[in-house]
């Protein structure tokens, strides 16, 4: 069953056609990677999923609901969570509080006034946040201030903030960009662990090593359009993809 359907999305910035008739189907339970050279329109496409950009034409359906015309808040409430490339965290708050905020958003909705009940007293919320932090390996740093953490830990926190909402669709924007090889491998391991839960994911990534270790399906973008789609094996074998992007480098050397 198709969870996210993208039909003929077009988006221009002035004369530049960033997205030119993009079609995409993300099946439930898959890890769908979107790859492509710089400027292929991957990030633009992701922005349209979360409501940051409004495409000029086309339609996006999530689980049968129209995504276009909704603001980021509403889209998140539908069950789409986005992991930011540069960590967007609440720097002054503790790690636990950082994760409790999205957990509360999931539980209480977009806006609730309850100025008299202690947040830390919401046992279910707290436990969910603690579990999310454990999942990404931050259990021992729970009470540290987010701003004081290392860059890698901030990205794990960022991931925990999305996981705690238990979204139906998780969007990852270059989860390993700028990471060392060790950190990259750790992240891959982490994401593989999460995948065992069957959460649908869309990953935008440059690093082929990451893409081929994680994804079950790959779409290749070039110049604002999807030029090839298939399983990792099909993509590796595709001559068009080799020519347009991979240039022989499959990350398997």
């Amino acid at each position: 069953m198709s969870l996210l359907t993208v039909n003929g999305i077009k988006k221009s910035f002035g004369g530049l056609k960033a997205l030119n008739d993009v079609n995409l189907n993300v099946e439930e339970g898959t890890v769908h990677a979107v790859i492509g050279p710089n400027g292929a329109g991957k990030s633009t496409l992701l922005h349209t999923f979360v409501g940051k950009l409004k495409p000029d034409e086309g339609a996006i359906l999530f689980n049968g609901d129209a995504v276009l015309g909704k603001d980021p808040t509403q889209i998140n409430q539908l069950g789409i969570s986005r992991v930011f490339q540069t960590p967007e965290i609440f720097a002054e708050l503790s790690m636990l509080e950082n994760v409790m905020i999205p957990a509360l958003a999931k539980e209480d909705g977009t806006f609730t006034i309850n100025p008299l009940g202690a947040a830390m007293n919401r046992r279910s919320i707290r436990e969910r946040a603690e579990h999310a932090l454990e999942d990404v390996g931050l259990a021992d740093k729970m009470h540290g201030t987010a701003a004081n953490q290392s860059r890698g830990d901030k990205r794990r926190l960022e991931l925990a903030m999305c996981l705690v909402q238990n979204p139906r669709l998780l969007l990852l924007d270059e989860p390993t960009a700028g990471m060392s090889r060790t950190d990259t491998n750790n992240t891959i391991e982490l994401l593989q662990k999460i995948h065992s839960r069957g959460m649908t994911k869309v990953i935008i990534e440059h690093d082929m090593h990451v893409v081929f270790s994680l994804s079950t399906r790959i779409s290749v973008m070039a110049q604002g359009a999807v030029i090839e789609e298939g399983t990792p094996e099909q993509i590796k074998a595709s001559a068009r993809v080799q020519e347009a992007y991979l240039a022989g480098n499959t990350g398997e050397e």
Partner: peptide, 12 residues
């Protein structure tokens, strides 16, 4: 600290 992030968490 970060209003933009709240938008993407389903908060107003």
């Amino acid at each position: 600290t970060n209003q933009t992030r709240m938008d993407y968490m389903g908060l107003k």
